[in-house]
Simulated scan of single mutants.
Amino acid sequence: MSVRSIGSLLVVSALLGAAGCDGGPPGLPPASGGPSVEASATPAVEGDDLAVKIIKPPPDYLSIDEVFDAVPPAGADATVLAQVIEKIRQETLILGRVKGGIAVKCAGGRVALSAGAKTRCTATYARVTIPWIVTIDAGVAPTDRLVRYRVTLEGKSVLRAKAVYGAFWDLYMVVREKVNPDGIDPRLSCDAIPDAQLADLGRTGHRCQYLEDFVGTQRWVRYDVLLDGSGAVTFDQP
């Protein structure tokens, strides 16, 4: 599985040596006698930032602990339907990472409780309707209040821009701490991604990148944006 699971960016200034108006080498006075411009030791960077520059996670991007605080599990005396609804709300917010109303409906307004039974439910969140399947464990005789079950997606998940930008910042900070804690100032960017959309699991067609120091030079490290098997945002180098 790939490594799991954003505004204006502080751009690292790159002072490049400017050639004189007579085409002379950088750092020498131009033929006109104008002021000289010193050549910089900062290496040139090939390529540009992507559309959205990231200086920090979005302010409303939730950590996993904040998700659990926002949607606590149903009480022990709740019915199976109530438990399932709260579980789907929680799982949906884990995917989207931004607070918002989450309306859950299950087929027939109930959960089939026979061993191995499957019930289709949906979660509507940020104007996107996400399909879920609730499966009752085949190995345990269920009751109205005691049952083992799991909730899984039906091949699609919600893709939220802020979830991508926040998760990419998290990834960058982990990599930076392990590889180059004293490196250059953060310079991250991602493609412009719609606020929320229903997307297939797997590669989304979007990219993110950050700039890193590498043996005295600077280079872009690029990642594809994916939704893994659980529907969460992950990244993979192409």
Results as ranks from 00 to 15, higher is better:
Met1Pro: 14
Met1Glu: 14
Ile6Asn: 12
Ile6Pro: 12
Leu16Asn: 11
Ala18Lys: 11
Ala19Leu: 07
Asp22Tyr: 11
Asp22Asn: 13
Pro25Val: 07
Pro25Trp: 07
Leu28Lys: 15
Val37Glu: 12
Glu38Ala: 09
Glu38Arg: 11
Ala39Glu: 07
Ala41Phe: 04
Ala44Cys: 09
Ala44Thr: 02
Pro58Ile: 05
Asp60Tyr: 06
Ile64Glu: 10
Val71Glu: 13
Gly75His: 12
Ala76Arg: 11
Asp77Trp: 08
Glu86Gly: 14
Gln90Asn: 02
Glu91Ala: 11
Ile94Thr: 15
Leu95Val: 09
Leu95Thr: 13
Val98Cys: 03
Val98Met: 10
Val98Tyr: 02
Lys99Gln: 09
Val104Tyr: 00
Gly108His: 03
Gly108Phe: 00
Ala117Thr: 04
Lys118Met: 03
Ala123Thr: 13
Ala126Cys: 12
Arg127Ser: 06
Thr129Gly: 03
Trp132Ile: 00
Asp137Arg: 06
Ala138His: 09
Val140Pro: 01
Ala141Arg: 12
Arg150Phe: 06
Leu153Phe: 01
Val158Leu: 13
Val164Trp: 03
Val164Ala: 04
Gly166His: 00
Gly166Met: 01
Ala167Pro: 15
Trp169Pro: 09
Asp170Ser: 07
Leu171Lys: 11
Leu171Asp: 10
Tyr172Ser: 01
Tyr172Glu: 01
Asn180Asp: 13
Gly183Met: 03
Gly183Gln: 06
Asp185Glu: 13
Pro186Met: 04
Leu188Phe: 00
Ser189Trp: 04
Ala192Met: 10
Ala199Cys: 09
Arg203Thr: 10
Thr204Gln: 08
Glu212Ser: 09
Val215Trp: 08
Gly216Tyr: 11
Gly216Glu: 13
Arg219Gln: 12
Trp220Arg: 02
Trp220Lys: 07
Trp220Gln: 09
Val221Ala: 12
Arg222Ala: 06
Tyr223Val: 11
Asp224Phe: 03
Val225Asp: 05
Leu227Arg: 11
Asp228Cys: 01
Gly229Ser: 05
Phe235Gly: 15
Asp236Pro: 05
Gln237Leu: 07
